[in-house]
Design a protein around this nucleic acid. Structure first.
Lengths: 238, 238
DNA sequence: TCGTGCACACTACCATACAAGCTCTGCCAT
DNA sequence: ATGGCAGAGCTTGTATGGTAGTGTGCACGA
């Protein structure tokens, strides 16, 4: 069982050209393969992906709605720079929704769901041993989705996932991701343990600690390398 | 000072064809002018709005992302039916975010912001006297936006607004909107009063009561006229 | 009368052509 | 040498044509 591929875990992206383009470009932005602030071009992307401008353009419009790119009419499209305010908003949205969902999850969780969560954690241990950050991110997405899915509000995952995307992108700026994986996995375990114990307060506290750590790590990156954040003076070419 | 027009209170929609089409179609869906479950057509909309299919199509793609329409390839586009699960999700998102924002707002609110909120309430009283539901909805949007804007998380309004759109659409099914306006305005006042008093718990309780009333009203409509909800057996033509 | 299959009309999807606007470069005049 | 203007080459925005797929209704046969 593998979780690679569509790391979005959402309504099976359509296999039409637009769906493919959207997923590819989105993933390249989140993984920083397309640098924040760098300029894009509908024509260029169309050439690279072997498609016409239409599906590319439609993808970019959706990514703009998600705030991952910024389209300036008649000028160009650029990968959104990583702005502190945007990160803070994403954190707020993610934290509020995940915590609210978890507090309801405690009362309805069943053994199978706990087993699933523990299974994901076990896989994350493997990803950690292998220093496989890509696998770790995919499993992290899966873990948090499974967590929300326990409550009746799994369909709000769409919203959480969009916020999480901004946070994950900023996280990837860190040079020491592999050193933090084990701590993060321990926190996942704490959440599941509290959930299994039926302790609502302990579970939400554990989740809050976890999410705050992610946020604080981003703040550390910013303190270390402020040039990676906020609007770039001039648009860098990719 | 009037709040009509773009009831979205968001990054000044672009005045290009797509922006106009998006706003018009979106508004028609929310106001039920386009019936839930009814079928749309890129061609037909293009003709009605005097545009080509391109900006219409792009608008529909964005509305699909917002779950307000459902696009089935090679078959058609239909206005999303009002589904209970979707309403519940929207309520969850809205409630979680507005409450979280308000709990932080209590510590930072200033006199000017309270005055603004009271001014909006005063205008709502006028809208109530005139039985002007459209004005009421616009002012309601403005009130809740202003409330969130007190905290640092005003930029999460985008997300809240999308959830609220689904709730507002369902609310409009009610035949007795005008009779509820005064209660809702009283609740707005309670929120502002608690906020002014610096009582965080009272404020969030008041807001929760308010949001729950809106949600419960929708449940009442559903109990009364279940045929208005959930997937329509066959697609009705508009 | 009822069931079956085929043709037609309609859909969204994609490709492409054209239009409008911005930016930057390089020439020209001062 | 420097300021300004003109034009070329980009950009995204819009319009339109062709394609593939779906659903429907009608005709035909049992």
């Amino acid at each position: 069982m593998t979780y690679v591929g569509s790391s979005r875990l959402l309504p099976a992206a359509p296999r039409n050209a637009r769906g493919q383009a959207l997923e590819i470009i989105r993933q390249k932005i989140i993984t920083l393969e397309l640098a924040p602030g760098s300029q894009l071009s509908e024509n260029e992307l169309a050439g690279q992906l072997g498609l016409s401008r239409t599906p590319i353009r439609e993808s970019l419009i959706l990514l703009a709605e998600e705030q991952l790119v910024s389209v300036v009419p008649q000028v160009g499209t650029l990968v959104s720079p990583i702005v502190e305010a945007e990160i803070a908003t994403s954190q707020f949205v993610r934290e509020s929704l995940e915590l609210a969902a978890l507090s309801e999850a405690v009362d309805v969780v069943d053994a199978g769901q706990l087993a699933d969560l523990n299974a994901v954690i076990a896989e994350q241990r493997v990803a950690d041993e292998r220093d496989d950050t890509e696998l770790f991110f995919a499993l992290d997405e899966h873990f948090h989705f499974a967590l929300m899915n326990i409550s009746q509000h799994g369909s709000a995952w769409r919203t959480v996932s969009q916020a999480k995307a901004h946070l994950d992108r900023a996280r990837r700026l860190s040079l020491s991701l592999t050193q933090q994986m084990s701590t993060l996995i321990d926190q996942h375990q704490s959440i599941v343990d509290a959930l299994a114990g039926g302790d609502s307060r302990a579970a939400t506290d554990a989740l809050r600690r976890h999410l705050r750590k992610v946020f604080d790590d981003i703040a550390l990156i910013r303190a270390d390398r402020p040039e990676l954040f906020d609007p770039p003076a001039s648009s860098r070419r990719r």
